[in-house]
Structure formats: structure tokens, C-alpha cells
């Protein structure tokens, strides 16, 4: 049973990390209006919610199997950040990531009961939670160094970075001030030849 838990906690941790990154990527693409026209926005939103729920479920499975796998860590070390005596940073990041995922997902279910600004601030925790989960996996993962793990990590970084870059670019474009309308006199100053004649004739 302990062996089964040991292998399940490794696999469920990897799957949970993939689901977290996929959820964040979906949300970033959706909020940045980069989901294309093939699917309706409601489809992407529904998928985003579903993936978030699954990510939380597999994070819970990872915690339960880690506790049952006799890893030498207790509930306090798992759930209290900074309580682990060894690999403190890795365990702390894992606990914080789990709390972040739980907070983001559970506050999205009764979203309508929260003010949008409050919900958005809580929802933005998904990004640091995903990063913390990734660092936790790299520091504490038993399969770090395996080729498949390295390739998976690179793929997840790419999947998470691309929509994040698109989202940030969209924010920058929206905040860039629109060029002011030129007054006719300015147009006349920049015009030349026949254009200047036309501008002058229009006055």
C-alpha cells in the first residue's frame, strides 16, 4: 500500500502541475481575447473552470498520497509553511502553492458574491501559485534529472510563458495612450504641395 501511495504521489503531483499550468494558460488566453474564433468564449470559460477544479482535486490527491506514502513528513510539515525540518523551502513552496490553488478555485465558484476587484486580486494568485508549484516540483521531485521530466518541465514553461507574454502585451497596448487628433493647422504644417493647398482651401 505504501508503495502504491509512493508512486501515486509522484504521478499525481506531475499531473496536478500540468493541470495548474493548463488552467493558468487557458485563463490567460481567455482574458487576453486570444482564444480565436473556432470556439465560443463560453467554451473556453467552462474548460477553464473545469481544469481548475481538476487541478485542485489532483493537488488534494497528491497531498493525501504523500501523507500515506511514509515519506517521513507529517501533517504539520505538509500544511504549515516553514514547518518542515528538511527541504524547508521546497515543502513551504508546495504548501503555499496548494493554498493558492485552493483559494483561487474556491473563490471562483461563488464569484458573484465577491466584488470583481476582490475576486480579480485573489485570482491573480494563480500565477505565483503556479510558479511555486513548479519550483516545488523541481526541488523535491523524485524524478528530477530524468529526461522525460526535463522535457516536461520545458514544455510547461513554454505553455505558461506564451499566453502570459500575450496577456502582458495586450495590457501594454491597451494602456498606451492613443495619439491625439491633429488640428487642421498641424495637418497644414505637416502637409506639403497639393495637400497644403487643399487644407488651405478648406479654411
Amino acid at each position: 500500500m505504501t508503495d502504491l501511495m509512493w508512486f501515486l504521489t509522484r504521478s499525481s503531483g506531475v499531473v496536478a502541475l500540468v493541470l495548474i499550468v493548463a488552467t493558468v494558460a487557458d485563463g490567460l488566453m481567455f482574458s487576453g481575447r486570444n482564444t480565436g474564433t473556432r470556439r465560443r468564449p463560453a467554451w473556453w470559460m467552462d474548460l477553464h473552470r473545469g481544469l481548475g477544479g481538476y487541478a485542485l482535486a489532483f493537488t488534494g490527491l497528491h497531498l493525501v498520497t504523500a501523507y500515506g506514502a511514509d515519506l517521513g513528513v507529517g501533517l504539520t510539515e505538509v500544511f504549515v509553511p516553514g514547518a518542515a525540518s528538511s527541504s524547508t523551502t521546497a515543502y513551504t513552496l508546495g504548501a503555499l502553492a496548494a493554498y493558492g490553488v485552493a483559494l483561487v478555485v474556491t473563490t471562483s465558484w461563488p464569484k458573484r458574491r465577491l466584488r470583481r476587484r476582490t475576486w480579480h486580486a485573489l485570482h491573480a494568485l494563480s500565477l505565483p501559485a503556479a510558479v511555486a508549484a513548479g519550483v516545488h516540483a523541481l526541488q523535491l521531485g523524485s524524478d528530477v534529472g530524468a529526461t522525460w521530466y526535463t522535457l516536461l518541465t520545458l514544455a510547461l514553461v513554454a505553455i505558461g510563458t506564451y499566453p502570459l507574454a500575450l496577456r502582458l502585451l495586450g495590457i501594454v497596448r491597451r494602456r498606451r495612450p492613443e495619439p491625439a487628433m491633429r488640428r487642421p493647422t498641424e495637418v497644414a504644417e505637416h502637409a506639403s504641395g497639393d495637400e497644403r493647398v487643399l487644407v488651405g482651401a478648406g479654411r
Partner: peptide
């Protein structure tokens, strides 16, 4: 109620299959 119901079900099935399959592979 769930426009992406099929995709969600597929994602769940894929996640469960990956978890079990990866555990067997690691074992």
C-alpha cells in the same frame, strides 16, 4: 450548463489515466 462538457470529461479521463499509467511506469 457546460459548453465544454466533452472537453472537460476528456481532460478528467486523460488526467486519471495519466496518473495511473505514470504510477505503473514508475513502479
Amino acid at each position: 450548463p457546460h459548453p465544454a462538457g466533452n472537453a472537460r470529461a476528456s481532460a478528467l479521463a486523460l488526467s486519471l489515466a495519466t496518473t495511473v499509467g505514470m504510477a505503473a511506469y514508475l513502479q
